[in-house]
Amino acid sequence: MADALSEASDLSGGEESQDEDVLTPPELIARLEEAWLNEKFSPELLENKSELVECVMEQLTHMEENLQRVKKGDLKASIHRMEIDRIRFVLSSFLRSRLQKIEKFFPHVLEKEKSRADGDPSFLSPEEFAFAKEYLANTEVYLKAVALRHMPPNLQSVDMLKAVPEPCLDSFVFLRVKERQENILVEPETDDQRDYVVDLEEGSQHLMRYRTIAPLVSSGAVQLI
């Protein structure tokens, strides 16, 4: 994938590399793949990656435009077309995972957003936030219109925060360590076990409770696989 991509950047004329702090296309796609796997395997919604998504979208548009200039029937063209399709798949799958979690946990996602301190990064992109709000309103209106308004006065509302389950942070995830970690506290599985600490070596792979390593996922120290 990387080869075709660096070619893609040749095709793009290399304008982007002039901006400082801008990723090369292969780096950009590597970031996208990391974000994608993390989002796919974490039980809760992770921080939004709006900027990354925007860059990948721009990259795709760029590649499409360049493709128009390549002669038809050129073998290069089909390789690039294929590359576009693959990036679009990863990007769509990533955004799909996020949207699925937003729908599954919408009251909790919105609550988290409400209680977020000023300056803290938002978990939702502005567009996702709008979507979640509409989803909540739409669902509440529906429940009310079909049944709740016909119920006795004290039963005309359902607390969505209590009704819709929260993400299960105790589920287990596979992970690969990117930066060595010391003294990670592991909680006991059963009453006759005690908690203990482990060191996570760089490059090692583990199966652990998500809750234990959630901060390491958001800091980028471990990669879910």
């Binding site: 979208m57 795709l60 548009t61 693959r86 679009r88 798949f89 769509s92 799909r96 979507f131």
Partner: peptide, 24 residues
């Protein structure tokens, strides 16, 4: 809501994320 969201994703027409369900 879904259409608005997908249109907002950039590019000319946004991105239809209901497509590309399996890796090509």
């Amino acid at each position: 809501s879904l259409a608005t969201y997908m249109r907002s994703l950039g590019g000319d027409e946004g991105l239809d994320i209901t497509q590309d369900i399996k890796p090509p």
